[in-house]
Amino acid sequence: MSRWLTLIILSAMIMPLWAQSSPNLGAVPGAEFLSQWSTSIDPWGNGLPEGSGNAIKGRPTYLAKCAACHGLQGEGLINDRLVGGHATLQDARAIKTVGSYWPYATTLYDYIRRAMPYNSPHTLTNDETYDLTAFILFMNGIISEDQQINQANLPDIIMPNKNNFFSNEFELP
């Protein structure tokens, strides 16, 4: 037997072993599973669900479900302040709020949807989440009280502090 033939036969024996060196035990999820689990929203709005809302509708929901921790006007109570603090980021006591600090409105929707209200996350409808997002943006003077927000226009809202984030190491969106 030629050396070449030996090599080919040996290779044929070894190659499948390489291919199998990773256990490959994962299952392939179905489309419905994937869609249910795809619950993050990026700055371009990918992942935002259908629906819409405004601050007028958001106010009563906010008072009922958010004000106990964040204050009647988002001034902060037992948990984070949400409103104000604009132009304080160079002060000795910077006030970081959604309005003064957060770079993306899409992040606000994502966070409310995944974690709020604190004691009962995943109980708000998509429209209620748009309403609350709108109300917090309105309290910060970023949108008007009657502006309707939805999956198409939420990514277009420019947050006041957006351009003040930088990285020396990573490319940012």
Binding site: L89, A94, W102, D110, Y111, F165
Partner: peptide, 20 residues
């Protein structure tokens, strides 16, 4: 750009900008 990698866990600089 999740809540915890933007509004938290970012380093506010003296000039008011934030390193992320």
């Amino acid at each position: 750009m999740t809540k915890d990698e933007t509004s938290k866990y970012t380093d506010l600089q003296k000039d008011g900008r934030s390193e992320i």
